[in-house]
Each structure stands twice: as C-alpha cells, then as structure tokens.
Design a protein around this nucleic acid. Structure first.
Lengths: 213, 213
DNA sequence: ACAGAGTTCAGTAGTAATACGGATATACGC
DNA sequence: GCGTATATCCGTATTACTACTGAACTCTGT
C-alpha cells in the first residue's frame, strides 16, 4: 500500500441505512474509493474475490453468513484485503475471534469520522487498529492491569512453584532449581492445592495457564 | 482526548541520535508537543508521574530499567498515559508481553513518518495500534491459519485421553468417562508419553495446550 | 517485643502414576 | 489370508505425589 494512494473499499452491512451513512461519510474523502457494497457475508466473499479491495469494512452479525465466517473464507483467498470489522457489540468473544481469524481492525458503530478514517488508513497500511472502546473491552477481560487479582491468594513463592509445575517439572527438579528441599516443594504444592482447589499436576497446570504464569 | 487538541508526548530512548531524530520528525507537527525526554525506564516512570503525558513513546531495551518494566509501573500510576512502544525487534515475546501489560501500541523503528503520526494519533484517542510488521509477526506465531498438524502421530483415542488428562482428570475418572478399564487408560497414557516425549501429567497438559485439545 | 504471614524442613501413611513385561480382539489395506 | 495398527486388558515393581501433623526461622508491621 503506497502512501497517499487510493484506498479501495468494500462496505458490507445488512442495514441499508447504515451502509448509506458510511458511504456518505467516506464519499467526500479524496483518497478513499468505495468500489462495491454488499449486505451479507456470502456477498462479502464474492465481492472480495471479484474486486480485491484494499479494505473490507464489514459488520459481524448478518443474515445468510456472518462476518466472522466470511472473514475466514476471505483470508484463504490469498488476496491482499485487510478486514476492518464494524460492530455494535464490544463483546470480547467477537473481538478475540476476529483477531484470531486475522482481521486487521475492529471499531464500534459509534465511531467518529476522524477515528474511522484513522482506522481505515491504519489497516490499509497493514497495521492493526482497535478502537478505544474495543481496546478497553479487550483489556478488561484478559487481566491486563498488573495482576488478575484472582490469584487465589497465592504467595510469590507459591506462584513460582506453580509456574514450574505447569512447565511439567518434577518436585525433585523444582527443588533443585529453587535450591530448596523436596519437602518444601511439597509443602508449597500442598498449599497451592488448598488455595486453588486443584487436584493433580495437570489440574494445577490448567490453573496456572488461567493465571498466566 | 478531544479531537484536534494537543497531544503531549514524552520520548524515552537510550540512543541520543534516535531521540533527536524523533524530536525533529515530530517538532513541526502542529498538534504534537514534546514535553520531555528520557533515556531509560526509570526516567520514564519519573517523567510520567511528573508530566502526565498523553502518549509515552518508548523503546524496550534500555539500561537501568527496560521499557516493559517501566510500562508496568506507569500503568499502576493511575494516570491517563498511553504507551506506544518503539522497538527494533518484532519479537513476539516482546509484543505480546507489551500488550499484556497494557501498552496501546507497538511500532518498529523503521516506521515512516505518516505511519508514526497515525500511530500516535490512534493511541492518543485510546485506540490500539500495531504497525504492519508487528501485526504480521504477531499473527504468524499464534497459529492463526487453521490447524497446527503437529500431533505427534497420536491416534483419536489417544488425543481423547490426552484432552482429559489436560483437564486434570485422574486415570480413574478417564476410565469411567470412556467406559474402559484403568489399565487401558494407562496404556494410552504410556503411548502418549512415548510419542510426545512428555513426562508427568503437567507436562502432558502443556503439550495438550500446544495442540489445542 | 510480639503477632502474623511466609518460607523452610521433617515423619508417616496412603494413593496415583510410571516402567517394565505381556496378552487378546478387531478392523483395514494389500 | 496376512501383516499392521489400534484398542482393549492384566501383573509386578518402582517412583512420584498426596494427606496429615508438627515445627523452626525470617520478615513485616504495630
């Protein structure tokens, strides 16, 4: 994507009114060209195959085929189209799934015009753009600010031991690594089980994974 | 962050030359104001506490205190500063860790001027911005396209058993669930260990996680 | 100086998992 | 039909882990 060159866009949304609103908003922007419009995921796939746009601006919840499924298929077309989702929901599941599939951006429908242009430019350049509310929503869930605080009241040492357990180390190895006795490791392990309610090593590994240790 | 208002920035990087380059690049942009500069993470924390910038543009690898550690501390200051990392490395570990901590963006040092401005504007608005190469690097690792297909030649039944092990179930429980004898579960478990090279239950849980079972 | 939390270590007993060995039945391809 | 892979089961012995109880030492805060 060369700077200042045209950005070819396809808009896909099942609400006519919203599609017209977006068109109106983008039509007077010099570097943006709306080359097609569609109203469901199936059309999105067909239109992308045909027109190979730079950016696909698409809703998620749509009839016939939803945006996520459409995105999956479009990603496999091997074309250089960036997908920017436009949704009313700042639902974490959606956002994460969208990013996992390979979407380049996600903004909510209450987005301002400058922000929308910012987002379009960003994804057209190949960057990833998540709108303010989207980013906030994403962070609130995945325990971003410092600690998750669902650590079951584990102490530093216990977390340390738990991390090593989750790595698959034996008590013997953990003891060696931390320069403590096996009995101490067993004590910690016992405390960890008490606090977390975890059972065997695999269960503890699962908990460690949830705690991101 | 109101639109079109000033964006107050602090730049932190241990290389004088690079810092000067950034300053030069941003100094003639009307809506950007560089209010301070620093050369390590410790200074970043102090300067943010003092000046409460809108955006902190910071390197990761720096002496005294690195950018990630500094970011952690800054996130806990309770101020409204967005952190935009600027790194030479598109290392996945760094990027993911940065986002986990709560950074708002990540661009590489070969970023063009318009892209840099785009990134700064985006994060100032509260959005998340990942540069093109950063986004590409992030997606390549996290198994985005379809399946991993590194199943070590495990059979269906073995995968089934492995999934239950990873959930933390005892052999006894697995036997009950699958309506087979404990000895059979042990056989499968043994086969799984042989094929994967996994050791104890936690190690198998780790492998299962990598295989997404 | 004291209480409390955290880390450290030990004994004793029981349960779960692992490391060897083997065995039978069933399906699938050649 | 024959070989191979898969899935099913058993015996024995060893190792790893769990459950319970008790105790010493270091810090931190009052």
């Amino acid at each position: 994507m060369k700077p200042n060159s045209h950005i070819k866009i396809i808009i896909v949304d099942d609400h006519d009114l919203l599609r017209e609103g977006i068109s109106a908003r983008l039509s007077d922007v010099g570097y943006i060209e709306i080359i097609a419009e569609g109203c469901n995921g199936q059309e999105a796939v067909t239109l992308c195959k045909q027109f190979k746009p730079d950016v696909l601006l698409m809703d998620i919840s749509m009839p016939v085929m939803n945006g996520l499924e459409a995105a999956k298929q479009i990603m496999q077309l091997g074309i250089n189209t960036r997908i920017l989702f436009l949704s009313i929901y700042d639902d974490n599941e959606y956002i994460q799934e969208a990013l996992r599939i390979g979407a380049s951006g996600f903004v909510l429908k209450d987005v301002s015009k400058p922000e929308m242009l910012n987002a379009i430019k960003s994804v057209a350049e190949g960057a990833t753009y998540l709108g303010p509310k989207v980013a906030a929503s994403l962070q609130s869930s995945s325990g971003v600010h410092g600690e998750t605080e669902c650590t079951y009241g584990l102490t530093k040492r216990e977390k340390q031991v738990l991390a090593l357990i989750a790595e698959g180390h034996l008590n013997k190895e953990i003891a060696y690594r931390l320069n403590i006795s096996i009995r101490t490791v067993e004590s910690h392990r016992s405390a960890i089980r008490d606090k977390t309610g975890g059972g065997n090593a695999a269960a503890l590994a699962k908990i460690a994974r949830e705690l991101r240790l």
